[in-house]
């Protein structure tokens, strides 16, 4: 278990998330990186080789998620589901993992070969799997 995973009160094991993250990358070659991190910016599990890049991503994911969630709350738009950012060379999507009281987040980064809807659908499916694992670990 990684250092970040050990920090979690719930005891979520990185090993249980990682195969699903790698599975997303195998199934969709356009996915560059996938990560589960804590809402305060620590990596729990990731499917990417560059650990430093993963740490930076976790911090940015937690910030973006928090700002997005605060905006949704301020605008009274109900329950926050996900945040997506699209650019000329790729896109990223951030999700709160259901059933973790907002403690765990999923982030997926894809290049421009992957369609937005395709990534959204794949991430939703993955997020359901992660929620199930998180529920078992709680």
């Amino acid at each position: 278990m990684g250092e970040a995973a050990e920090r979690l009160e719930h005891g979520f094991a990185a090993e249980r998330f990682a195969p699903h993250l790698f599975g997303l990358r195998r199934e969709y070659p356009g996915v560059i990186a996938a990560q589960v991190c804590t809402s305060d910016g620590f990596v729990v599990a990731q499917a990417q080789r560059d650990e430093e890049a993963g740490r930076r991503l976790a911090a940015m994911v937690s910030s973006l998620h928090a700002v997005g969630a605060a905006m949704i709350e301020d605008l009274q738009l109900g329950t926050y589901y996900h945040l997506s950012v699209e650019a000329s060379l790729g896109k990223c999507m951030l999700f709160a993992v259901p059933g973790t009281q907002g403690h765990l987040l999923l982030a997926a980064i894809a290049d421009s070969s992957m369609l937005w809807g395709q990534l959204l659908s794949a991430c939703r499916t993955l997020n359901e799997q992660l929620a199930e694992i998180a529920g078992q670990g709680a």
């Binding site: 920090r7 979690l8 809402s39 998620h65 928090a66 700002v67 605060a70």
Partner: peptide
């Protein structure tokens, strides 16, 4: 506020600002 639950046990604090 953009606070998240603090998982860093080195600081005795329930939440921390991340945004």
């Amino acid at each position: 506020r953009t606070e998240a639950a603090n998982t860093d046990s080195s600081v005795a604090k329930a939440t921390t600002t991340v945004g």
